[in-house]
Amino acid sequence: MHNPSVMSFSVEPLNAETVVIRVGKALDFRNAAEFKAICQEQVQNGVRNFILDFSETGILDSTGLGAIFSLYRQVSPRNGQVVFASVSRPVQVVVQLTRTYKVFRQFPTVEAAQEALQQT
């Protein structure tokens, strides 16, 4: 049987168009395909705003970042957004390096991100 404890990501719908994805300890070459598949399913269900919760995340490599980029390219034509919440230090380093803070807005908490998304 499928064991939920080995899953790296959990999805929490906020409304029909917005979900929170809790990124676990790592988003990297080992689980990027899984992340993509989960996001794909949400996009197909009409979700266009993604809040990524990085509070637990110690590893974000270039394959993982690539998976987030793919998501961004899917939702941006639909005026969707991908925003980062509770960004851990290792994630912050990657975001700084790639200058992607120019694209992904960052918020101190999931709640703050949610509030900002409701206003747009």
């Binding site: 980029f69 961004y72 390219r73 790639t98 200058r99 992607t100 694209v103």
Partner: peptide, 12 residues
């Protein structure tokens, strides 16, 4: 000085 990574934003 640096800018955004390529392939992400057509308005970069």
């Amino acid at each position: 000085y640096s800018d955004l990574i390529l392939g992400l934003d057509s308005n970069a």
